[in-house]
Amino acid sequence: MATARRLVVSFGRFWWEFLIGENPDAFIGALVVVGAALLLRHEQDAAIVLVPALAVLCLMESAYRGRRRI
């Protein structure tokens, strides 16, 4: 039982570190892009422009915050 719990905790910790780690910006950016793509799935023309634009905006915002955080 203790071993199983330790395995679950290790597994959860791995995914937490992998997805969020010390910088949650990429995870939030991915969520924003997926959310926007789902919301705009019936608006092809808008989605083609907005989905990549949101990804790029998330990247720029994250890089800028990375500078300011230091």
């Binding site: 990429a26 991915a30 990804a55 890089a63």
Partner: peptide, 19 residues
């Protein structure tokens, strides 16, 4: 969708650090 999201997490993280 799930895989695209995962790739974005990895890609945006690597790109941010590289920038």
């Amino acid at each position: 969708v799930v895989i695209g999201g995962l790739l974005l997490v990895l890609g945006l993280g690597w790109l941010r650090k590289s920038i």
